[in-house]
Write a protein that binds this DNA or RNA. Sequence first.
DNA 1: AACGTAGTACTACATCTGGAGTGGTGTCAA
DNA 2: TTGACACCACTCCAGATGTAGTACTACGTT
Lengths: 191, 191
Amino acid sequence: MRQNQARRAALLDAAIDVLAREGARGLTFRAVDAQAGVPGGTASNYFANRDDLLTQAGTHVYERLTPDPETMARSLEGPRDREKVLQLMHEVVGRVSAYRAGYLALLELRLEATRRPGLRAVLTPRIRKDVDDNVDYHLSSGLPGDATAVTLLYLAMNWLIVERLTLPDVFGEEQARELVERAVERLIPEV
Amino acid sequence: MRQNQARRAALLDAAIDVLAREGARGLTFRAVDAQAGVPGGTASNYFANRDDLLTQAGTHVYERLTPDPETMARSLEGPRDREKVLQLMHEVVGRVSAYRAGYLALLELRLEATRRPGLRAVLTPRIRKDVDDNVDYHLSSGLPGDATAVTLLYLAMNWLIVERLTLPDVFGEEQARELVERAVERLIPEV
DNA sequence: AACGTAGTACTACATCTGGAGTGGTGTCAA
DNA sequence: TTGACACCACTCCAGATGTAGTACTACGTT
């Protein structure tokens, strides 16, 4: 088992791309090698088996999905009102939709977790933490809306992103924008 | 190409089960044969290729997911108030979660649609129609809440189901129930 | 400066697996 | 008798895996 951490990370990035592009069906060691631009057989030297690869990819996606602290700080500038929440939601939906590969890979991993207890054990606390962090962040930053409101927003926004990424013509871009606005409008109190 | 419709339907049912259990990765002609309990090579005689199989499965899932008219009529008995909406939501979430294979298969198909234009072309109008039907049904039956409210409920409930089916420990059963209640409470006006 | 060693990169191979498709035969019903 | 279908068996093929063997690089030793 090789120890080059930079290369391992590159392979995991490649694995995420492959997951998104080819699906769990296409995630093979050789496909990862090709995507990462390394010689065939390399991934075999870095991961014991498919399960190992998937599990590590699972923890890795989140490191790419979370925004850098700077962006987060900047997004909080100005008054903490409903308008700000709307702005944040647009930002989140935009950011996640933009990292298409990451989000799609995460969906693939969720489905794969259905049959792999090891993967499920990795993803569950990670996502649980994500939800909690979202709520905590929202509450502690003094934005309007309670924990329930934030959670409901989380649910709605996630599915909206799924729709946009998988069947973009079900809700057009304009309609998607409007749904974000309506969701905030109805779930977040106007101070 | 064989014409036996009953057998074709049975093969499609089997395909849905395979999709849910093994994922898109596992959906092969032979796996469908095995699941349907027919001799190897049968599915080859009924579907031209993988793409054909997936597309037909896509249209087929919905026939299994939609509730029978009788159930729907019965669920509307009594006063048309917010309490009734809540009851309907519990019913929907329960019914869909119960048909685990169908819903998971649909998710797999959504992801597969990402790479198969033909499948996307089949799923998009089907799901668009589903959303519209939900809204129309709600409005025309005189339940409280406008089109926006129904759509937002649709979004939130869908993701809640995803959470429950893929990572059941992120939201426990009790918490899921409560989220359904809160969603109705906040999105549907009290007459 | 020459040498040795360890860890890694790269190449190539041998093997394995499983699925696809098809031809042939049996069966049943019109 | 004929046609459509069910069933079985066989061949072919593609892709994935893991590893043995070789080359390279960096670093430490003498």
